[in-house]
Design a protein around this nucleic acid. Structure first.
Lengths: 173, 173
DNA sequence: ACCTGAACACCGTTCAAGT
DNA sequence: ACCTGAACACCGTTCAAGT
């Protein structure tokens, strides 16, 4: 707060006229970013594509503001449920049901949450990787943050597809 | 640091005789916890089970100390690479190769990271879920933290299995 | 070898006051 | 309506000093 006021050329207490505390300010920022993510139309494609689209949308917002990821994702599941609801609708349309809807959603949410703690891991200090790994290091050079995220999302989608298949199998009995 | 000293009945500066700063103290705690996780023997079972076993091991350590998750996972990929190497060996034994080893590892690491930011989400305030969701809420009651983690790990494993299958397909060409 | 006390630079925030 | 200044309770940490 003090740094913000300093950068705006005001006294330390100036922000407190607009906002009641630091938390409220961060909430407003998170709210703004969340509102910029669009949900795909229900009939705009297969669930996999719609899911990927929301996740990439959230990723894009977080990309330039990794600092508020925590607040943002916390809001997503408490006060600002628009995106959470949207994702759950996608999962329902995919065929998830009952507890599985929440399990699947939580899994996705958790991955997103991790993404913005790690971020810096994208370029993992290839220096002094031991034994078996040393030979693999060259492969690391070409990988970028987006590659890691894309691979993660793909893997999650494949995983969910498998869960869905076994759900349908057990339903048939 | 001040609170630690207070609880130990020492002056605020007492810890600084043992440790050069707060970061170093947290590192020592993280190191201790990481060292308590055992890696399964390479021939102790299929890769899926060995992977699950390490992840559950890490989860168990983090469970009672969610606060140091950030430091712990950061160490895992920087100074304390024992577990990271172990997981990567498991992935290699599963058939991953080249960049895919790192992509798969990063995906897992990211999920773990998210797990301990979210934690509290495990019981998501079923109050005022809107429209389509209201009907699903009863299913939430029975779900516990462990269920969410187990489902996440299962989904990741299924996802990785699918990635592996397509890797092998492309290798055959 | 182990610890203390005073001090510094930094926070978020309360409260009374200024224009 | 919009902002300031002084003050408080809290940090992590430096430095010189005590036993």
């Amino acid at each position: 707060m003090r740094r913000l006021s300093r950068e705006l050329g005001r006294s330390a207490m100036a922000p407190y006229w607009y906002v009641s505390d630091k938390q409220e300010l961060l909430d407003l920022v998170a709210r703004k970013l969340l509102s910029e993510v669009t949900l795909p139309e229900p009939d705009s494609g297969p669930w996999e594509e719609r899911l990927r689209s929301v996740l990439y949308g959230i990723d894009a917002e977080l990309h330039d503001h990794p600092g508020i990821a925590g607040i943002l994702l916390e809001r997503m599941r408490s006060t600002d449920r628009r995106l959470m609801n949207g994702i759950i609708e996608i999962l329902l349309s995919a065929g998830f049901e009952g507890p599985n809807v929440f399990l699947a959603y939580a899994m996705i949410h958790t991955y997103l949450f991790g993404r913005y703690q790690v971020m810096e891991m994208d370029n993992p200090d290839a220096t002094d990787l031991e034994d078996t790994l040393a030979g693999l290091v060259p492969h690391l050079a070409g990988l970028r943050g987006r590659d890691f995220f894309a691979y993660g999302v793909d893997t999650i989608i494949e995983g969910l597809r498998a869960q869905l298949a076994s759900l349908k199998r057990s339903r048939r009995r």
